[in-house]
Design a protein around this nucleic acid. Structure first.
Length: 484
RNA sequence: GGCGGCGUAGCCAAGUGGUAAGGCAGAGGUCUGCAAAACCUUUAUUCAGCGGUUCAAAUCCGCUCGCCGCCUCCA
């Protein structure tokens, strides 16, 4: 089965056929760099990071472009508030964005262009649009004329009349049609500007993406992605500009990820219910956050809550615990011969194919993760059987490699299992009100008590630690502990 | 008002025509000094409701109810 992608423009899953066989051009709208990123940005970027990785895994030569919008009203406003130039703000938050993305273990896109470094390209397109009659100058502004472009609103499936009926559109006498949008904005006194045929000014919001995608990917390219909220007006306007300027199709597959909700409500700054990536990563491991984000399909809304994150953490813990047990068993001696477990063999052999099947169906990471859990249950069962047969030993090694392979595509399960578990333990231990030395001392005391068959004291210690959220795990080699 | 989406077990979540994946939580068992962890078994005759199409529907169609998003900057 070949890759099928849900295309926003047609509202259905379509077989993915790249423009040039074996190659994929993919553009994802980046951020406007005026503040720290929140978990909504985390979702969009993680989702497209996994799509990027999977396309390469599937054998495509992918050119992935993700821009920085580094000139915009909000950047200028913040610069004015802080009494600095706009580029101080944009450079600061580009650095912060890069840090966040690194913390989320994202791979770097092929290109990360900035709007301000593409002013000549932007001006070139605007000139073309004016020459062709799709745009008009109005004072120092240049606006796109939606009435001239027949395909307007084809992505979001609306029509101009209905839009106007309910829209709170500002009356702007500089526009011929209320829905016309700015390609070039005249600079007000004190604002940053670039020289243009229409005077000093700066690009409108949408035109930069047309200019940069065209430059790095060509006039028509395969995949354009972003959050659902960008469908209108941003992507709609990109289509209008690009297709009007070039006279050819802009994008073949439009992909949009769903929102992150907080208690089933949209996260927004005005509601004050948003979390920055840094805040979340202070409480949860980045792998837990990725795992959580990938446990739902990318187009569905996902509800961010402490409970859901904790459940994701528990689930990932289960997987790493199994992988750690697997490593331990593999490190031991095993019988040279003996049959392999039939179920394990089936799951292990089928893992890559089932992964591709899941991902080929519009990047179904939730299903792919479910497959791993099934394998985990089986790994646990086989690993718990005292001595390992030679066949099972090979199967377990294959299972480990298989999980690593698909984990590499999703950017999860990539840590050394014991290192992951230690990382989580350390993080949680830091939140405890009892020092690690004290825990270790009590564990040792309990071991002595148990040896002396003083189970009263031994259970007392266990209850005491449990009341402080510490769980004791007795095994043949002694007692380990973990934070609940 | 226009456009679009969603409603699957206590919770999270796959499944878009062939008889309900998976995880968390719960119950019973194995193990254990007793527990925990792990393993085994178990937990939706049913997919918001009502009709319709079909040999067959959670999946397709219609209506009703409920929730949400977009139409303004937004991932």
């Amino acid at each position: 089965m070949s890759l099928r992608i849900y295309n926003t423009q047609t509202g259905s899953k379509e077989e993915f056929v790249p423009l040039v066989p074996g190659k994929v051009g993919m553009y994802v709208c980046g951020v406007t760099v005026y503040d720290h990123c929140h978990i909504g940005h985390a979702r969009a970027n993680v989702v497209f990071d996994v799509i990027y990785r999977y396309l390469r895994y599937a054998g495509y030569d992918v050119t992935y472009v993700r821009n920085y919008t580094d000139i915009d009203d909000k950047i200028i406003n913040r610069a004015n508030r802080e009494g600095v130039t706009y580029d101080v703000i944009s450079e600061r938050f580009i650095r912060e964005f890069d840090r966040d993305m690194e913390a989320l273990r994202l791979e770097l896109p092929t290109h990360q262009p900035k709007a301000t470094e593409h002013i000549p390209e932007i001006i070139h397109i605007i000139k073309k649009l004016v020459d062709r009659g799709f745009a008009y100058q109005s004072g120092g502004d240049v606006n796109f004329s939606v009435a001239e472009y027949a395909g307007y609103l084809k992505l979001s499936g609306r029509n101009l009349d209905d839009m106007q009926a309910g829209a709170r559109v500002d009356v702007d006498e500089k526009k011929r049609h209320p829905m016309d949008f700015a390609l070039w904005k005249e600079a007000k006194p004190g604002e940053p500007f670039w020289e243009s045929p229409w005077g000093k000014g700066r690009p409108g919001w949408h035109i930069e993406c047309s200019a940069m995608s065209m430059k790095y990917l060509g006039e028509t390219f395969d995949i354009h992605g972003g959050g659902k909220d960008l469908v209108f007006p941003h992507h709609e306007n990109e289509i209008a500009q690009s297709e009007a300027a070039n006279g050819k199709p802009f994008v073949r597959y439009w992909m949009h990820n769903g929102f992150v909700n907080i208690n089933a409500e949209k996260m927004s700054k005005s509601l004050g219910n948003f979390f920055t990536i840094k805040e979340v990563l202070a409480r949860y491991d980045s792998e837990v956050l990725r795992f959580f984000l990938l446990s739902a399909h990318y187009r569905s809304p996902i509800d961010f809550s402490d409970q859901n994150l904790s459940e994701a953490e528990a689930g990932l813990d289960r997987i790493y615990t199994a992988l750690a047990a697997l490593e331990k068993v593999l490190a031991k001696e095993s019988a040279a011969d003996g049959d392999g477990d039939a179920e394990l063999e089936e799951l292990v052999d089928g893992l890559p194919a089932r992964f591709r099947e899941a991902m080929d169906d519009d990047f179904n990471t939730a299903l792919a993760i479910g497959n791993v859990f099934e394998l985990v249950r089986c790994i646990n069962r086989v690993a718990a059987e005292g001595t390992l047969s030679g066949a099972n030993r090979r199967l377990l090694a294959q299972a480990r490699d298989g999980v690593a392979e698909i984990g590499g595509v999703m950017g999860i399960f990539t840590s050394v299992p014991t290192a992951y578990l230690a990382r989580i333990k350390e993080r949680k231990a830091g939140e405890l009100d009892i020092p690690v030395e004290e825990i270790e001392r009590l564990v040792a005391e309990r071991a002595a008590a148990r040896k002396a068959k003083d189970f009263k004291r031994s259970d007392e210690i266990r209850d005491e630690l449990l009341s402080r959220n510490i769980e004791l795990l007795d095994g043949p080699q002694g007692t380990a502990w973990k934070v609940k």
